[in-house]
Each structure stands twice: as structure tokens, then as C-alpha cells.
Design a protein around this nucleic acid. Sequence first.
DNA 1: AACGATCCCTGTTGGC
DNA 2: TGCCAACAGGGATCGT
Length: 277
Amino acid sequence: MPELPEVETIRRGLQPVLSAGTVTEVEVRHPRMLRRQPVASDFADRMEGSTIGKLGRIGKFLLIEVGDQGNTWVLHMGMSGRMEIAGHGTPEPVHTRVVIRTEAGQEVRMVDTRTFGFVAVYTPEELASSTIARLGPDAWTELPPASGSADKMAGRRVAIKSLLLDQRFLAGLGNIYADEVLFGAGVQGTRPAGSLTTPEIQAIFNTIPKVLAEGLRHGGTSLDDLAYLLPDGRAGQHLDYLSVYGREGKPCRRCGSGIVREKINGRSSYSCVTCQT
DNA sequence: AACGATCCCTGTTGGC
DNA sequence: TGCCAACAGGGATCGT
């Protein structure tokens, strides 16, 4: 499921194809993909004929400048979304939901089996009133110091893992990388956020950039179902390097004891009960 | 305000 | 073998 390293990998892959290009035609094959567009028909109107500017990202949201009205093309991959770059008219994967054609003869396809992803073009006003405006700092480019975050954690009873997944607290971590961060920091995800010591909070914030950098270095994590692929069709290689996620019963890479799986607020969570306290 | 539960979706998996 | 419930989960929304 695309998290920060996967979305950043997608951003980097799309950049050379989209940046400075002009959109000639868009096709939306599944209306659910436009459920966040204030007026669904506005999507094509705002995209077609527009020139693409910079490709940005906050957390798991791709934010792309489009047109000369200050509009933002928003893409979210949900849990099964991916982007594919191809030539016009080449065979499409099943579950192709949105197609963006450019003047240069390339097209970008959003493929999303479960349709948890979405696309939209927001005006500056719509963006300002959207959830994107309420996202926390980006975990990769705007990671705050541990001290300030410790203040926000004081008194909180929520499980630290749930807080790490809260995009208003910190934008970009998902279920895989939250587990990896907690393992790296030696903290159990079930711990109430307010119970963490200063060194534990420091360890978490020291670990976040390391975990994200490794994920990025490997082009992200493609699970066995290959729901996520790079825009050029390759699989991300980070699965082989995960410490805990998806490794139930396998030996901890650090101490050898079995990785345990449990639910935290409905999310599958993996940890080493020896290395994490 | 904080926090947990529920829902959306479909391909895969496991149990009987 | 065949069927079907359970499962996967990011984010919106609702209830407590």
C-alpha cells in the first residue's frame, strides 16, 4: 500500500514525463475516483489544455501544479493504487481507472483495483478547505524535532502506533513503515503515546528518516500482490529488507525471537516483544 | 477534544 | 472440489 516512500518514488518517476507537459485529454473510467472532486465534471475541464507545473507531495498526497489559475491536481493511491507511464494506444492493465494523455504522446494511467484512491483538481480555495490543508508536517521533508512532538504527545492515551498513522499528527507513515519505525526505536505500538519517555520519543524521531530513506532507496515496498509498482513497471525492492512487517513467526533479525502479530485499533501490527518494550 | 468503530471496495485466502 | 466468510487497509465519518 503506497506510503510516503512509494508516493515519493511515484513522484520522481512521473516528474520527467509530466513536468512542463500539456494535458490533451483525460478519461475517467470509474466515477468513484472523482468522489472528492467538488463537481465531478470540473476534473476534465480543469485538466484538458492545461500545462503541468511542479510535482509536489505532502505525506501520501501527490500535489501537482496544473494550469495558470493556481489549481492543484491531487492524487491519492489509497491502498491499491499505482501509476503507469506508457505510450498512447498501448495495452492497458486491468483496473485502469484514470488516463491522462499529453501532447508529447505519452500517457499516465492510474491503476487501482480497490478504488480507495482518488483524483481531483482543486482551486486554491478548495485546497484550503480540504483535508490536505489539515495534514501534519511531511515526515520526510518537514520532520519536526522530537521535542515539539513530545509536547503534542503529552497526556495522550492513544496507542503510539495509531498516532503515527494519524496524518494530522505526521503525514506519510502507513501501516508498514509505522511498524518498522517502532521496531527501530524499540517501542511497542500499543503503548499510550503519553507514556513514552523522552529518549523513546527521540528514538522514534531519529528512526523515522532512516526507515524512510531505506524504503526510498529500494524504490518502495511491493507486496506479493504487486498492487504497487514503479511508474516504469518495476517492483519496489524494499519487501526483502523489512524488519517486522509481514514477518509473523519469522525470527527477529536482531534477536532471533519470533515476530508477533496483533491488531492495534483494527490494523495488523507486527513487532518483536523482546526488542520492543 | 479525543478516540474507537464502521464503512467503502475487490482479489485472495482459508476453513469446512 | 466448491462455496463463502474473512481479510487486507487509508481515509472519511459517525458515535461516545
